[in-house]
Design a protein around this nucleic acid. Structure first.
Length: 253
DNA sequence: AACACATTCAACCGCCATGTA
DNA sequence: CTACATGGCGGTTGAATGTGT
């Protein structure tokens, strides 16, 4: 039988689902004392939960501006596109969806979108799974057409143009430091760090201004950079609503 | 109604990066 | 430089719920 070496016997921490009263305690505590120091939260608040558990509960469910409920088509579309480029970078993807958490995006992908986007993931026991795959593709294409992220060619005609080479993207850490203030949950804001020649390329945020790309997005860089994807194209040039871009800074790579 | 199976999603786990003493 | 604490991330689990028979 193993003997505990530590003289400090930690109290048994609670697990499983949070109760409403626990939520209330945590919410009150954080609102009073602020976020951070999660390890001390359980001690001082009286919650018998680990710091990580408290942090997760706050971050995913209790903090203000959390958006619950079904994903909109635009959100779904954005997740699919970003996942295509970034892979399982859930926090990065969630960062582009105001009010959504990485956990929610991850779950949504695993339960809804994975089947759609990775045909092999559909259960082979499903007698109609080949038909589903076809329908899924059709539905996806329909969504692409419907999505406001996509623009007809004519929509680019009156838009400002910019080359991908003229911009670069900042990293994860910096990206996390700013909160979106955009009220429309489906779109991001342009921040001060988005630097471009406004005289040469006059663009008004939220006015469907469009960028046209000369080349494929620099996929290799996207691993650690914020997405700057030519939405609505399968390669080559593409267009993106400027208000879908959050942080872009001038050349630094 | 009862059971089996499938699906969803909240929560946990382990690992890693960073900050600090 | 090292050790430790903390926070953040993605992967995984399992209880709750839904659906089919």
């Amino acid at each position: 039988m193993e003997v505990k070496r530590s003289s400090v016997i930690k109290p048994q921490l609670k697990k499983n689902l949070w109760k409403a009263e626990e939520d209330l305690i945590l919410k009150n505590y954080v609102e009073t004392h602020g976020e951070g120091n999660w390890a001390t939260v359980s001690d001082r608040s009286g919650l018998m939960r680990g710091g990580k558990s408290c942090r997760l509960r706050w971050k995913n469910y209790l903090r203000p501006n959390i958006k619950r409920g079904e994903m909109s088509e635009e959100e779904e579309d954005l997740i699919i596109r970003m996942h295509k480029l970034l892979g399982n970078r859930w926090s990065l993807i969630a960062g582009r969806l105001p009010g959504r958490t990485d956990n929610e995006v991850k779950n949504y992908w695993n339960t809804h979108l994975n089947k759609k986007c990775v045909p092999g993931k559909r259960k082979a026991t499903d007698p109609d799974h080949h038909q589903h795959e076809e329908n899924d593709e059709i539905n996806l294409n329909k969504k692409k057409k419907l999505s406001p992220l996509c623009h007809s060619e004519s929509s680019t005609e009156s838009a400002g143009l910019i080359r991908t080479e003229s911009v670069s993207l900042n990293g994860r850490k910096e990206e996390k430091d700013q909160e979106s203030t955009v009220t429309d949950p489906n779109w991001m804001e342009i921040t001060d760090s988005f630097n471009y020649d406004i005289d040469q390329y006059p663009i008004l945020p939220g006015k469907n201004a469009t960028f046209v790309f000369d080349d494929e997005p620099l996929a290799a860089y996207l691993d650690s950079f914020v997405l700057f994807e030519p939405f609505g194209c399968d390669g080559g040039g593409g267009a993106v609503r400027t208000d879908a871009i959050n942080h872009v800074v001038t050349n630094n790579y």
